[in-house]
């Protein structure tokens, strides 16, 4: 068991996380922004984590969808961090979090437009060239379209095509968006270039209005999202699956139950033993 599923590391996790006593993820994901260029207590904790687990990274502040120039000095720090800890997976969001030279620290929706596709694809290519690796971009939850001229799936597919990067498929985000914008989640997933999926996110969400769900990462995964996950896994080659839980953290055993459930589903469809085991490299990474 626990072959495919990792968890996003939170500073709130206590020492028994590394001991694998209650929770046994097969890898952990971290936000480079929280761990790069630091020392002292958290640096020691992070070193321990990297010794105990394979580590993947998922960025917050690169702001691929920003109209601003890429922040090269920031990217340089990212590269140093990835190299220092030998982290070979780096993903970011298909959104923007910086505009007019101001960070906003959250994920804003990009206008689904042709010029934005060209702009962002170019930026992704530049990032990949600089990092000398492919990155994965994540489909984000959004609560309103912004001056959209095409569908979200068309937008994502075009960027994947033009930038030659991977897709981090966040299944919960697909569910949230399908609910919020009234489309069919399965059709949406089927319309994506699934051969480009290199990584999956799973999370919980919160319904705040009759017709609005917010992607909070603060609740357990709901049954329909597991179903959508099952539907997706059946159509994908084996890739790492990440459980995201950022707020309202439950007891560790509850997170392990979610990890178990995700593993059960993956094992229905994928027979590779461990995405991180020696000699196995996920094909798309």
């Amino acid at each position: 068991m626990n072959s495919f599923v990792g968890i996003g590391y939170r500073k709130e996790f206590s020492d028994d996380f590394v001991n694998r006593e209650i929770i046994r993820p097969s890898f952990v994901e971290v936000a480079p922004e929280n761990w790069m260029g630091i020392g002292g207590y958290w640096r020691k904790v992070f070193e321990k984590i990297t010794e105990e687990f394979p580590v993947t990274s998922h960025g917050l502040s690169l702001s691929l969808g920003s109209p601003d120039d890429l922040d090269w000095s920031f990217l340089k720090k990212i590269k140093t961090f990835l190299r220092e800890f030998n982290i070979t997976i780096y993903s970011e969001h298909l959104s923007y979090s910086k505009c007019d030279n101001a960070h906003l620290y959250d994920l804003l929706p990009i206008p689904f437009r042709e010029d934005a596709i060209k702009h962002i694809s170019r930026r992704i290519r530049d990032v990949q060239d600089y990092l000398e690796m492919k990155i994965a971009i994540e489909n984000v939850s959004y609560y309103t379209p912004v001056a959209a001229e095409m569908s979200e799936s068309q937008f994502i597919a075009s960027i994947l095509e033009e930038s030659d990067c991977h897709l981090l498929l966040d299944v919960n985000n697909v569910y949230v968006n399908a609910f919020n914008h009234g489309y069919d989640a399965r059709d949406f997933i089927s319309s994506l270039p699934l051969d480009k999926v290199s990584y999956i996110h799973m999370a919980g969400h919160e319904q705040v209005e009759p017709d609005l769900i917010i992607d909070t990462h603060g609740q357990n995964i709901v049954y329909p999202v597991y179903e959508l996950f099952d539907f997706s896994v059946e159509r994908l080659h084996p890739v790492p699956v990440l459980l995201e839980r950022d707020f309202n953290l439950p007891a560790m055993f509850v997170l392990q139950q979610e990890i178990d459930k995700l593993n059960q589903i993956t094992q229905k469809h994928w027979n590779t033993t461990n995405v991180f085991s020696k000699g196995y490299i996920p094909t798309a990474i």
């Binding site: 109209p67 505009c99 804003l108 206008p111 912004v146």
Partner: peptide, 26 residues
Amino acid sequence: YLAKDTYQQQSDLATYCRSGKLSDNL
């Protein structure tokens, strides 16, 4: 590559988030 109007939409949304001022064009 980004058209002026697309930039403006993004800028208006970011400005709204920071200041609460909602542009009519957004």
